[in-house]
Write a protein that binds this DNA or RNA. Structure first.
Lengths: 205, 205
DNA sequence: CCATATTTTAATCATTTGATTAAAATATTT
DNA sequence: AAATATTTTAATCAAATGATTAAAATATGG
């Protein structure tokens, strides 16, 4: 009889490979990552990677799906809370994302850059723009601040929040901006961005 | 007698290869681009690529250097104009970058993602953070708006300006946000961002 | 402890890919 | 036009890389 129960995999080998794949893929991207890099990082034989995941592509798909969920999963939930004001949603969004990105700083550059490379885009299904524009948050915006274009405002809110993490390789590496200073500044931004976003919303005319 | 004058190369073959390299590298990144892709795109034999540029790496370095200059070259000039106010510099910056990025939409994602991948960073030399913080613009900011952290403000200004172009693959592809609408919105932002940036600067306390 | 299933490894394939070579084609000079 | 230099191509190489295979090691169940 072949095929026992899956047991509690995800503990040792398979999990180690997946973890190594996360690290290598996020640093080098799909095409820059070699399966041998991943195997070495995981401390296993190269054949094991194919034994557990069939192929580099399959392994990548798992990592990519996981990372996309991590990057996009919480936005909609926050922006669709029915009982929060616009201002509260902005605070929640900023706080959640900055904390999450401090722990996953490579996440946005990885996801956006891989989506950009993929010919027939991964985003066929889940249409982020549509989903965003139908959120409670955008409806609230349209009602309370009708003079502002919701997508334009979202571009700015997302840009202020996410961009520093995308630009970080530029500053961080050469020793100019140490890790801990960057972290402190980002924590500051959890306070600054909501204030700034509110100021933008309150502009008259 | 070998080695004639270089003549007016840069007209046909070499220029075609360089142009093809720009296109393929910007779409797929260094490791995702194959020299055969570039050769095919240029309509030449693969060996010609190595004849003119010695190697994939050398060709890439030329493209990368050119693209980094395109992305960073003008910032400092704009931010160091001695006779412009903070507000004028913000307007100039936004206008220049949005127009430039509309013509080179892949530029930021390409440059930042390749810098991120390169182990020992390309940015060793030119230390962007230091140069930014020593600009006339930052000195003016510090004088006129002492309550605001210049780098925090710059993160937001850059984020509002550049981020939409980085996030575009997400929206643009799936047919949700057509190219011309995106372009119109970005032109709108040339007006919006300076207004919004000024509002941020004018916050009291 | 034996039999069977699962996990791991070493060795090897097959393909891809960057690069080279030698010869052909084309241009340039005299 | 002959001689020489330059550009281009077809064919091929060598290394890198994703994947497979068969056997060994280890775990599991009776």
């Amino acid at each position: 009889m072949a095929k026992k129960i899956q047991k509690d995999k995800d503990l040792s080998t398979e999990a180690r490979i997946r973890e190594a794949a996360r690290k290598v893929f996020l640093k080098k991207g799909y095409s820059g990552a070699r399966t041998r890099d991943i195997a070495e990082e995981a401390g296993i034989n190269l054949a094991l990677l194919n034994y557990y995941f069939r192929s580099k592509e399959k392994l990548f798909e798992q990592v990519m799906l996981e990372k996309m969920q991590k990057l996009f999963g919480q936005v909609l939930i926050i922006l669709n809370q029915p009982d929060n004001s616009v201002e509260e949603k902005i605070e929640n969004f900023t706080a959640y994302y900055i904390e999450m990105l401090l722990e996953n700083p490579d996440l946005p550059l990885f996801v956006l850059s891989e989506i950009h490379k993929s010919a027939e885009n991964i985003t066929h299904e889940f249409q982020p723009q549509k989903i965003l524009l139908e959120s409670v948050f955008v409806k609230q915006l349209a009602k309370s601040y009708p003079h502002i274009h919701p997508l334009q405002f979202l571009f700015s809110l997302l840009g202020m929040t996410i961009f520093p993490f995308i630009a970080r390789p530029l500053l961080n590496s050469s020793g100019t901006l140490p890790q801990d200073i960057f972290q402190m500044m980002m924590k500051q931004r959890e306070v600054l961005i909501p204030k700034w976003a509110d100021a933008i919303l309150k502009i008259k005319e």
